[in-house]
């Protein structure tokens, strides 16, 4: 049976894993390669590494970090941050990533989605969407660019559909309203996007406990859910979390 995926996300800045609350108040959480391996060993189904300041500071993705992390990682590995062209993506794949996540650059130039997809396959392209709705209807949620700094005036559901049409393989949907709160994923927003596209939707922002994952997999119709801070600070590990999610009737990869 196809299981729902629990993804450990490493937000990287200056070669270190960091974690912020609602995209600010950054604290240090460790070495990317070390944490990636620890998460994989603890049962994470997938690892995502986001160079969160790459777009903002105009730096290219930290290829050395990617290489070091990918070296002995035998679960799917996604890298995002600062990928502006098919050439940038190629360098990240060369360094060992299986998928790239593009966000701001796809908003600036949506053709990029198809350009990367035609060389590396749609399965290798994740379009990440940072969404804010401040209590409004999920269909009114707005897309933000540049690490949540710039409103774009675009609606999240419509942008997700366009990304799919242009050849995205998955959507990584982050609720800026929920991010870092540990109060749960935005199930309404996730369900609205999941219903609007055929490709898998990864929910992000707000993970605090196993119940939150179970909710976003059922009510939120997410195919995968991502969390960072709850893992890094030893609140729980993926194995314990997945066992608890499985007890609520959601298919999980267990034992792992």
């Amino acid at each position: 049976m196809l299981t729902k995926r629990v993804i450990a996300c490493l937000d990287v800045r200056g070669g270190r894993v960091v974690k912020g609350i609602q995209f600010v108040d950054i604290v240090d959480a460790g070495d990317p390669a070390e944490l990636a391996h620890r998460h994989a060993a603890a049962g994470a189904d997938e690892i995502v590494l986001l160079d969160i300041t790459a777009t903002h500071e105009g730096r290219s993705t930290l290829l050395d970090t990617v290489k070091r992390t990918a070296e002995k990682l035998f679960v799917p590995f996604t890298v995002g941050g600062g990928i502006r062209s098919a050439e940038d993506a190629a360098a990240v794949f060369d360094a060992g990533a299986d998928k790239v996540s593009i966000n701001s650059s796809a908003l600036v130039r949506p053709e990029l989605i198809g350009e990367i997809g035609s060389s590396f396959g749609a399965q290798a392209v994740i379009v990440a969407i940072d969404a804010r709705r401040e209590g409004k209807d999920p269909r009114e949620a707005e897309v933000f660019a540049s690490g949540g700094r710039k409103p774009t005036g675009r609606r999240v559901v419509e942008w997700a559909q366009e990304a799919e049409q242009r050849g995205a393989g998955e959507i990584l949907l982050t609720s800026m309203d929920s991010d870092g709160t540990r109060n749960g994923f935005d199930c309404e927003l996730t369900a609205a996007v999941s219903a609007a596209v055929q490709i898998p939707v990864i929910a992000s922002g707000g993970a605090g406990n196993a119940q939150h994952f179970a909710e976003v997999f059922t009510r939120g119709r997410a195919d995968a859910a991502l969390a960072a801070s709850i893992f890094h600070f030893g609140v729980t590990d993926s194995r314990a979390l997945k066992a608890e999610v499985a007890r609520s009737g959601v298919a999980m990869r267990l034992p792992c």
Binding site: Q123, D223, R253
Partner: peptide, 10 residues
């Protein structure tokens, strides 16, 4: 049935 089939299956 969602397609592509992405993820861990038995």
């Amino acid at each position: 049935l969602k397609s592509p089939h992405v993820g861990w299956n038995s």
